[in-house]
């Protein structure tokens, strides 16, 4: 449900504005991209792209993975182009979301990814060695879970502009996504701990 689809009657100004912000962050992120980042970026984009197909039937709604917090922890600022590309492919190949909404959907998932990265960065100081892997794991888990929570919060904020009740909507979507939040937090935490133990240089400052 994290994708907003074409039919949702959002304010056109919001849609346009989200496109402008998306393009701006995209250009900035891409200007920071180095050749050696590309393989990692592609692999994680592939994971984010396919993860949205994994559904969990929980209560009345069917929810799918987002993996934006995970992308943030692994990619830093490059999580933004990662999510943008994944959303474009999901939109055209799986008809998730909608073409006009790619901008706002990228913000909804990409900005929380960047915040998740900031949390991971401040928490660990990017001093990641096999000895500090517990700390890396902990903050990656927090970042991984929070990525999804923030994405839902962004979504709920936008939905109130079309008349949904904020608190009610937020509680409903967050409750529906509880298993996703938990699984993504554990997944990101375990993976970060594993990488910290075997290949800590993957987290080097970009």
């Amino acid at each position: 449900m994290v994708h907003i689809s074409d039919g949702v009657p959002l304010d056109p100004l919001l849609i346009m504005g989200s496109w402008v912000v998306t393009v701006a962050i995209l250009l900035y992120a891409l200007s920071k991209m180095k050749t050696e980042d590309v393989p990692k970026l592609s692999v994680i984009t592939a994971a984010v792209f396919v993860a949205s197909l994994i559904h969990i039937q929980f209560g009345p709604t069917s929810v799918h993975f987002v993996l934006n917090g995970f992308a943030g922890v692994m990619l830093g600022i490059l999580a933004f182009p990662c999510i943008f590309v994944a959303l474009v492919l999901q939109c055209f190949l799986f008809s998730f979301g909608g073409v006009t909404m790619i901008g706002i959907n990228t913000i909804n998932m990409g900005v929380p990814a960047l915040i998740a990265y900031l949390i991971f960065k401040t928490g660990t100081g990017l001093d990641i060695r096999p000895e500090t892997r517990k700390r890396a794991s902990l903050f990656a888990a927090i970042a991984g879970g929070l990525g999804v929570v923030l994405a839902l919060l962004f979504l709920a904020t936008e939905l109130i502009t079309i008349g949904d009740v904020f608190l009610e909507t937020t509680i409903a979507v967050v409750t529906a996504h509880l298993p996703i939040i938990a699984i993504e937090a554990i997944f990101t935490g375990v993976l970060a701990g594993f990488i910290a133990a075997v290949k800590p240089e993957m987290f080097e400052k970009k």
Binding site: T35, V38, P39, S42, F49, L53, V85, L89, L93, F94
Partner: peptide, 26 residues
């Protein structure tokens, strides 16, 4: 159900994009 063709197409696009990104950054 699972859109296998879509997944494969998407991964193909990603490989292509990665190639283009490599070219530009190189």
């Amino acid at each position: 159900g699972l859109p296998v063709a879509g997944i494969i197409t998407g991964l193909g696009y990603l490989a292509g994009l990665a190639g283009i990104a490599m070219l530009i950054t190189a």
